[in-house]
Computed example of a mutant assay.
Amino acid sequence: MLTIGRWGITALGLTLMTAACGSSDAPGEGERSAPIQRAPTLASEFTPVEIEETVDNLVAEINKNATRPMQMAVLLKEASGFWSTVFRAANRAMGELDVTGSVLGPIAPKGDDEEKVEFQNLQLEQVVADGAEGIGIAPFGNDQTTAVDEAVAKGVDVVTLDTDVPATKRSLHVGTLDRAAGATAAKTLLAMLPPGPGTVVIHGYEDTGWVNGVERTQGAADVFEAAGHEVLVREASWEEGGETEDVDWMKTQIETADPPVVGMLGLFNISYRCAMAAEATGEHDIPIVAFDFDPKTVDYMREGRIKATHIQRQYYQGYLVPYILYGIKSIGLDATREILAPQMVDDSRVNTGLDVVRADKIDAYNDFLDLIGSNQ
């Protein structure tokens, strides 16, 4: 059993406080001293203009009313790597909102997934006890439904990001829609392939214990199969020794598949393993398309081995969640949902989409990440 003391879960995020004024011209109780003001949007070919406009519209509607102080928390799986961008973005949004709260990217205990889930559930319980009125959470999986619903039952608005727990009473989910993301990546690769039949190797996921991974993989497989290609899926492994096992399996398929392998698609941050497998066979002409922006993936893109990658807008996931929580508190869920409609695919999911970055756009994309403070 995991145990933690009060805030023994080291709050690595910035805590931002507001205080009531004491002068005679101070705003009324429960009101803020100034309207919300966002930092200017920086222009780039990669700037998601629709998302930026949606946040502006939400701020404009909130500012029509007397804005109010609020306490919130954002709970992430980690504070480094992929999550460092989410961490910074959530802190930036909370600073612009001038709210009280923390972004928690804990050093989770080493152990199995069950321990990590229990640890995050304890975090959730703690921030509710400390008075959070809204919580953003990147859960580890569907088995956290009870913890989320218990927070909602206590009057707390909960918004999930990255991973969803759709069976709960959470207000909204913000993230990449995995089936659509897989299909988008597959279409990028498909444009580089000869007509079927051929074999496409997907470095994906098939264990139903991780719904997001399965959805992304199935979305990609559907595209290739519809085009007349055979699909072979290697289930990606992040375990010790997983890289060697992944590369060896894919190398074998390149050497033996019938019909021959005509393309490879990686769907996670370790997509570069596809290029490692092709390199191990001496094959340099197989088109490879990747996911995420790991430094090893970028190196293979610069060498011309990976033709394009697909990057989740994790910055915007982190940035949107505090604004959505504040909107729900200020103008209500229905009004917030109406403003978010351009990014919503149904009544509860906000799709932040993907950036498709081809090899000749690496430097331009890095410049964009620098603009928004999102480089890892």
Results as ranks from 00 to 15, higher is better:
residue 144 Q to P: 03
residue 130 D to V: 03
residue 158 V to Y: 02
residue 144 Q to R: 12
residue 142 N to D: 15
residue 157 D to A: 14
residue 156 V to M: 10
residue 138 A to W: 01
residue 153 A to P: 04
residue 163 T to K: 09
residue 141 G to I: 03
residue 161 L to R: 04
residue 147 A to F: 04
residue 147 A to Y: 07
residue 133 E to Q: 15
residue 137 I to Y: 03
residue 135 I to Q: 06
residue 154 K to M: 11
residue 133 E to W: 08
residue 143 D to M: 07
residue 138 A to C: 14
residue 151 A to D: 02
residue 148 V to K: 02
residue 136 G to Q: 04
residue 151 A to M: 04
residue 142 N to E: 15
residue 159 V to D: 08
residue 134 G to A: 14
residue 131 G to L: 11
residue 157 D to V: 11
residue 138 A to D: 10
residue 156 V to C: 09
residue 158 V to F: 01
residue 148 V to L: 15
residue 162 D to Q: 09
residue 141 G to M: 11
residue 161 L to A: 06
residue 137 I to R: 06
residue 144 Q to D: 07
residue 137 I to G: 00
residue 142 N to Y: 15
residue 153 A to K: 12
residue 147 A to S: 15
residue 142 N to S: 15
residue 136 G to Y: 01
residue 134 G to E: 08
residue 140 F to S: 02
residue 151 A to Q: 06
residue 158 V to M: 02
residue 140 F to W: 14
residue 147 A to P: 13
residue 140 F to A: 03
residue 150 E to M: 00
residue 163 T to Q: 06
residue 136 G to C: 09
residue 137 I to C: 00
residue 143 D to K: 10
residue 161 L to E: 02
residue 156 V to A: 09
residue 154 K to P: 10
residue 148 V to D: 04
residue 131 G to K: 06
residue 156 V to S: 08
residue 153 A to E: 11
residue 130 D to P: 00
residue 134 G to I: 13
residue 155 G to E: 02
residue 152 V to P: 04
residue 140 F to Q: 13
residue 142 N to L: 15
residue 137 I to E: 01
residue 142 N to V: 15
residue 133 E to N: 11
residue 157 D to P: 03
residue 132 A to S: 15
residue 136 G to P: 09
residue 151 A to N: 10
residue 161 L to N: 00
residue 156 V to F: 11
residue 141 G to S: 11
residue 136 G to M: 09
residue 147 A to E: 09
residue 147 A to L: 11
residue 145 T to M: 07
residue 163 T to R: 08
residue 156 V to N: 08
residue 159 V to A: 09
residue 151 A to C: 07
residue 155 G to M: 13
residue 143 D to G: 00
residue 149 D to A: 06
residue 150 E to A: 06
residue 131 G to H: 13
residue 138 A to K: 02
residue 161 L to M: 14
residue 159 V to C: 03
residue 155 G to L: 09
residue 151 A to W: 03
residue 139 P to S: 10
residue 136 G to T: 09
residue 163 T to D: 11
residue 151 A to G: 10
residue 158 V to Q: 00
residue 155 G to Q: 03
residue 150 E to R: 08
residue 154 K to V: 05
residue 145 T to E: 09
residue 151 A to P: 09
residue 137 I to D: 03
residue 163 T to L: 06
residue 159 V to Y: 01
residue 136 G to K: 05
residue 159 V to Q: 05
residue 148 V to F: 03
residue 158 V to T: 01
residue 152 V to M: 06
residue 154 K to H: 11
residue 160 T to V: 06
residue 145 T to P: 01
residue 157 D to H: 13
residue 162 D to N: 14
residue 152 V to R: 05
residue 155 G to D: 10
residue 156 V to G: 12
residue 145 T to A: 13
residue 146 T to V: 13
residue 162 D to M: 07
residue 152 V to L: 10
residue 148 V to H: 00
residue 135 I to A: 03
residue 156 V to T: 14
residue 139 P to H: 08
residue 163 T to N: 14
residue 160 T to R: 00
residue 144 Q to E: 14
residue 153 A to T: 09
residue 142 N to K: 15
residue 141 G to D: 13
residue 133 E to T: 10
residue 154 K to W: 00
